[in-house]
């Protein structure tokens, strides 16, 4: 697959997005710090990272699901030129579902358990596309068939708990794409599924992007999923994009020690079994506060005093579309503690 970079307005623009949670009596915690990325039509952009890296919070912010007085959102989120931050609730509700749609990790908790799957889809169709009665039913059947659910007429009347995990996830995808959204956000859509089912769902998402030209924001912790699906990858660590590049560039020439560390620590199906894994030491809880420097420093083999001199700046590699936030990237001599 080739990387498609559209010169036209991107479907989604996120610029310097910062999200801070404030709590009475506690110091505010920043979950996301100056995250920027764009997604064009028919493009798949990945946000990769481990627990607590801010990937899901970013998705919720884009969907306008973070509006709370305990959350401060800074920066810019624009959908096809429309600023989403500060948009009236009503407008946001209209956009959500119709233009922006989201798929969650656990379809069982995201679907309404007491309403048949078919009705949940027809409700979306009537709300956003004005389809009623038979027309809505027919369209719902067509959608369920589209996502590969066999015997869709019968499935319409079934409740979420009557379906298997894979089928539920498909039903949720059907619901998400029912109104032809231009942006689809998938938050760990396959993490709860078995591998053979995961392969089916990933294939389905790929197909949707190719045929409908949907922009897809893929949120995952699985670098394998990213390698197979995403055109462009943003690696997040503790709320910051530490490295961003098109996938071939990122996997072929990773720069940030966190990215390289991750790649070297995952056992690979096609790797040499004799070579021991090279783990990153410590855990994601060992952090340095942002204002003080690189959050990854406590776990990094290349850590130097410079790493703790404030927020690491974005460095762009010359000639390629590849940027990172490492103060002391490989190439300069590594110092192993």
């Amino acid at each position: 697959m080739t990387v498609r970079r559209e010169p036209a307005t991107p479907v989604l623009t996120v610029e310097d997005l910062s999200i801070t949670f404030t709590q009475r009596g506690a110091a505010p915690t920043r979950a996301v710090d100056r995250v920027s990325f764009e997604i064009g039509a028919g493009e798949v952009v990945g946000l990769v990272g481990e627990s607590g890296c801010g990937k899901s919070v970013t998705a919720l912010a884009v969907m306008g699901l973070l509006a709370d007085r305990n959350v401060e959102i800074g920066g810019r989120i624009a959908y096809a030129g429309t600023e989403l931050l500060g948009l009236p609730r009503k407008r946001m509700r209209d956009l959500r579902g119709a233009d922006l749609a989201m798929i969650f990790q656990d379809p069982l908790s995201a679907l309404n358990p007491v309403v048949p799957v078919g009705r949940q889809i027809t409700e979306m169709l009537s709300r956003h596309r004005g389809l009623r009665g038979r027309d809505a039913d027919a369209e719902a059947v067509q959608l369920l068939g589209r996502v590969g659910i066999p015997d869709p007429e019968r499935r319409l009347k079934e409740y979420p708990h009557q379906m298997s995990g894979g089928m539920r996830q498909r039903a949720m995808i059907a619901m998400a794409v029912s109104c032809g959204p231009r942006l689809l956000i998938a938050d760990e859509p396959t993490t709860a599924l078995d591998v053979t089912i995961q392969a089916q769902v990933l294939e389905l998402l790929k197909d949707l992007v190719e045929t409908e030209g949907t922009a897809l924001l893929m949120i995952t912790h699985d670098l394998g999923v990213v390698a197979g699906l995403c055109d462009r990858v943003n690696v997040l660590y503790a709320g910051r994009v530490v490295e961003a590049a098109p996938r071939h560039e990122l996997f072929g020439n990773p720069v940030h020690p966190y990215t390289t560390g991750l790649l070297r620590s995952i056992p690979r199906m096609d790797g040499d079994r004799g070579v021991p894994l090279n783990p990153i030491r410590g855990s994601v809880n060992d952090l340095v506060a942002w204002a003080d420097g690189c959050a990854f420093a406590p776990r990094c083999d290349r850590y130097e005093l410079e790493c703790l001199a404030g927020t690491p700046a974005v460095t762009e590699l010359p000639g390629v579309d590849h940027e990172h936030r490492c103060v002391n990237p490989p190439g300069t001599p590594a110092v192993v503690r």
């Binding site: 420097g293 420093a297 850590y303 130097e304 005093l305 703790l308 300069t332 001599p333 110092v335 503690r337």
Partner: peptide, 16 residues
């Protein structure tokens, strides 16, 4: 890089 002593680096890290 590498000019600071190992101890100084570790101290600074622990501090932050």
């Amino acid at each position: 890089p590498g000019t600071a002593t190992k101890a100084a680096k570790i101290d600074r890290l622990a501090e932050l």
